[in-house]
Nucleic acid binder design. Structure first.
Lengths: 226, 226
DNA sequence: TCACTATGGATTGCTGAACAATCCTGAGGT
DNA sequence: ACCTCAGGATTGTTCAGCAATCCATAGTGA
């Protein structure tokens, strides 16, 4: 039984600050720490049972990932997206995902078929009514699309970027009808990519991103005016 | 005289760790700290006159930027590029720069004309024989191309990525003839973009990146076998 | 009542020393 | 030549503390 995985009390397979950052990231993406919520190091350090210094390093990691913002002498707080952020993120998504779709003919068929697994998982989660899980799988599918480009650096960038995008949803309850529409569109895009109709796939993806951006902008506006 | 700018002894306009990270980054990109060089915190902390803890935060920033690598209980060292890294970086460059060229028709003419300033600076530096400066201006031009996409997040990503690319050059002396060829090609690409011939620009850019990648791979192979 | 000040506490940024865990080197033994 | 195993060096982390800055609240003056 090599490489056990008791994530809780295991001695450090990696730095303590990264472990704390993981736990904080979970709290943020799950909505337990809402945008705007300050991250006070003394309190959090005691709560996690680490030194204030280690916790500060963890927070700095989250700032670097764009999940928190930092102000000198005012500390860090969970990042709240504004409309400009959403446009910025979708400009990046369009660049990467459309590029990936357009150059998808260079990817091996095996890689394209691998995308199906994410969409299938999203479909299963949607049928079971687990909308949060469905959203996760949907984003995994889009990560898979970007992965076709073949750059681990871009993969990491995209992962942190969509993590930021989820900040917009962490303050509003997930409405089933709000999420339901996306899974069949993912299915359609996936099938178009697998069958090599990349022009249609790119076009569908462009519409998908336009619609998605509109929805997120609406959410951010609603939160902002609340 | 508000807001004096004695960069040396000025009280922190921003975090001390970031200031130290800047100075370390300069040393790395200038080649004073060669790839593989370990970053021992005790020594560097004393040299920069900061505490070991602050220096560790600075090093962590560089690790996050990809300019250094970290191993548990073995500390950090300046990152050395291997061939896989170069392929990874150029996959990202192709995705972003080609995408930017293809969608350049959505950019205002003013933004396209702004690119000229970087190429002009590169030409001046090349004529003066300042090849390092010319390389910097050339990369500024390519950053400007990516900027057309309109995502600050992608801009930051691209900036750190090309900074990593410079690691490949920090171990070899810059040969004039090696660098001379790129400036006229930048000029050609810039003019194609400004005149709206984006298909030709994209094609030329693709060839440019292919040639550039080959050159960097050769350099990395030479360093690796040395 | 409405500004404006100031004062004390809370929080942050950073330091220096300490300690355990791990790595590395080299001497010694077989 | 190979193994072992001390000893030092380096790293990861903690703790206590201090200066700088923010924030809220109270007081002051008009």
């Amino acid at each position: 039984m090599p490489d056990e995985e008791n994530d809780a009390a295991a001695p450090p397979p990696y730095l303590a600050a990264e472990a704390i950052a993981d736990r904080l990231r979970d709290r943020i993406t799950s909505g337990a720490l809402a945008p705007g919520n300050p991250l006070r190091d003394a309190a959090l350090a005691e709560e996690f049972g680490v030194s204030r210094n280690t916790l500060r390093e963890a927070v700095r990691l989250l700032v670097h990932e764009g999940l928190a913002v930092h102000q000198l002498y005012k500390g860090a707080a969970v990042k709240g997206l504004d409309v400009a952020d959403v446009h910025d993120i979708y400009a990046a998504r369009r660049a990467l995902e459309l590029r990936a779709a357009e150059q998808s003919f260079t990817a091996p068929q095996q890689a394209l078929d691998g995308l199906d697994r994410y969409v299938a998982a999203a479909e299963r989660a949607a049928e079971a009514g687990q909308w949060n899980e469905a959203a996760t799988c949907s984003l995994d599918f889009h990560r898979g699309v970007v992965h076709l480009i073949g750059s681990a650096r871009l993969d990491r960038f995209f992962r942190t970027t969509v993590a930021q995008l989820r900040l917009a949803f962490s303050e509003v309850p997930i409405e089933a009808e709000f999420q339901r529409q996306w899974v069949p569109r993912d299915r359609e895009l996936c099938d178009l990519l697998r069958s090599g109709r990349r022009a249609e796939a790119a076009e569908g993806l462009a519409r998908y991103l336009d619609d998605s951006e509109r929805q997120v902008v609406d959410i951010v506006r609603a939160v902002h005016s609340a």
